[in-house]
Amino acid sequence: MKSKRRVGFTLVELLVVIAIIGILVGLLLPAVQAAREAARRMQCSNNLKQLGLAMHNYHSAFNKLPFSASPQVGAVGTRQRGVSWIVRIMPYIEQNNVYSGLEFAGDFTMQDGPTPIVNYNLLNNLRVPGLECPSSPLPKTQTYTTHSNGSVTLQMINYVGIAGSYWRGGSTTVVSTDPQTNIYGIAVHNGMITPIGTNSRAASFASASDGTSNTMMIGEQSDFFYDANLNKIDRRSCGWRGGAWGNGAGSGNWTQNVTTVRYPIGTFGGSGNSNPYDVNVALTGAHTGGLNVALADGSVQFLSETIEFAIQTALADRGDGTPIGEL
């Protein structure tokens, strides 16, 4: 008997192979996505590490941490609003060419007073990739019309300085001493990146009596908030005129690029937590389950977004005396 078998696959065999491949791909795809997100989180954590190192280098040079804001100078139309702490650490994040060209007497909101053309030219379209969290879905720039130089495109970033905690560190109900109340919220300057003005000075590592490994210096605002109707909105602290480079109207007024912790991670609304120029905008992360923060000792920690709120306030307050333990 001679079998007349044809060489090749039957339809069933082919289907089985396709099904198996399909299942394998189905199993692999989520793993690949997770690995990509893990890589982005590591990139973000490295960005914060570099910023933490820049703060240490700044401190070595000046014996102080960079201050976040100084009071505005001048009347409407000729206002000068100063630079953010990000500009002050530019020489330490390889942006010395920009830094050395800037004129610090200009209006860094670029909207309320004349801006020297040299500042406009240096900051327009400037993008520093290390200030962006790769996981963030938020816009990278904003464009608006300036006071004196036409339209400008400025970078919006995902990292925000911690000015302090409205609640005394380790508490969620007791208010810190010396709260500075105004219509933009309530600022307390017991953190690491503080403004200079009538009631505040720049902080130093020596002033972190809790210890630099128990105090956070820089946090993330890299995701959307949700408004009362649960629509996504972008209200991070750099999201107003001046972008990452402006400090707002300064201490005792609205400030940008810093926040005083008053609300838990990922919450929106309430006094001081509704607009980018408010002083109590919450932290929020685009990573699964939380966000990265740079502690004052230069290390980077991942904070779970459902972290005990008392621990978050204790981290933000540099001198509360509350033990923190494991994060």
């Binding site: 109340t181 219509i183 933009y184 005792g252 007024n253 609205w254 006094s271 001081g272 607009n275 408010d278």
Partner: peptide
């Protein structure tokens, strides 16, 4: 839960930094 109830004050970009009502 312990509950606290406060009034929310909305700011605008140029409220001028006045005191909270």
């Amino acid at each position: 839960y312990k509950i606290d109830i406060t009034t929310v004050h909305q700011s605008s970009s140029d409220s001028g930094g006045g005191k909270e009502p």
